[in-house]
């Protein structure tokens, strides 16, 4: 354990450099650059609002805020896990030549996406002002679901990175799984419209409860303790499983990439 920490200390600058690189290169050579972190959620939320406004009816004046909260969290989760999954393979030339702790690659991918996500929450604040959603003291609690989401993404990232080294199919399978997660996370509809016998679907969704609690914070409600418990379970289990799996298999990576 001591050795791991020492090693981390030695390479934390690399973690910082790789995270910086991911952010810098993401928007390089596009004319609007980092502005896309803000524009992209605005545009997609606009589209989703136009499409789904009829389903919800006109009674919710802050429907765009509702969509935005779900979409921002989901898109961070999907981007981070997708990128982390490919991280070992896309850095294979380096892994074959220089010793670097391998977890640095997936972890830096998740971190860079988290930072981009944090920047894009500016859009959410803007939307709250425009649609008159008053922030309350509960907005401070939003750090809890966000940390859970970060831990969950790290865990899933490590698991997927390991699996994808041995089975390329994971990349396609996870794409399908992400779509399923998106439609069952109540991003653009109210969870209340689903009948009780189908409620288990939400429990099977790792990010549904995180989004639920994040929305509670934004709308000024206290955290839902039951949901908090479930999402903590998902986050911690995935992180532990990810670390164990990654450490067990990392010495075999080089033989498969």
């Amino acid at each position: 354990m001591d050795r791991v920490l020492k090693n981390f200390k030695k390479y934390r600058y690399l973690l910082f450099e790789l995270t910086k690189k991911n952010i810098k290169l993401k928007y390089r050579r596009s004319y609007l650059g980092i502005l896309w972190t803000l524009l992209e959620p605005i545009l997609t939320t606009f589209v989703l609002t136009v499409v789904f406004i009829n389903i919800r009816g006109k009674k919710d004046h802050a429907f765009p805020v509702y969509i935005l909260t779900g979409r921002l969290l989901y898109s961070f989760f999907s981007q981070a896990t997708k990128q982390a999954m490919k991280s070992i393979r896309s850095n294979s030339s380096m892994i074959k030549k220089v010793y670097v702790p391998k977890y640095i690659y997936p972890v830096s991918d998740v971190l860079s996406n988290f930072i981009i996500f944090l920047i894009s929450t500016v859009v959410l604040f803007g939307a709250m002002i425009v649609f008159k959603v008053q922030p309350t003291k509960y907005i401070l609690y939003s750090i809890i679901p966000l940390l859970q989401l970060l831990v969950l993404s790290l865990g899933m990232g490590l698991i997927l990175a390991t699996l994808a080294v041995f089975f390329r199919d994971m990349e396609y399978l996870w794409g399908v799984a992400l779509m399923l997660i998106m439609y069952t996370a109540a991003i653009f509809y109210d969870a209340g419209i689903v009948s009780d016998e189908w409620k288990w679907i939400f429990n099977a969704n790792p990010i549904f409860h995180i989004i639920l609690n994040f929305r509670n914070c934004v709308y000024g409600h206290p955290l839902d303790m039951n949901a908090l418990l479930i999402s903590s379970g998902y986050s911690i289990i995935s992180l532990v499983a990810g670390i164990v799996l990654f450490y067990k298999k990392q010495d075999k990576f080089i033989l498969n990439i």
Binding site: L14, L18, K21, V98
Partner: peptide
């Protein structure tokens, strides 16, 4: 930029 990145890979501090 690559000097910093490559240096970090080799484990040098900033």
């Amino acid at each position: 930029e690559n000097i910093y990145l490559y240096g970090a890979m080799l484990g040098y501090p900033k």
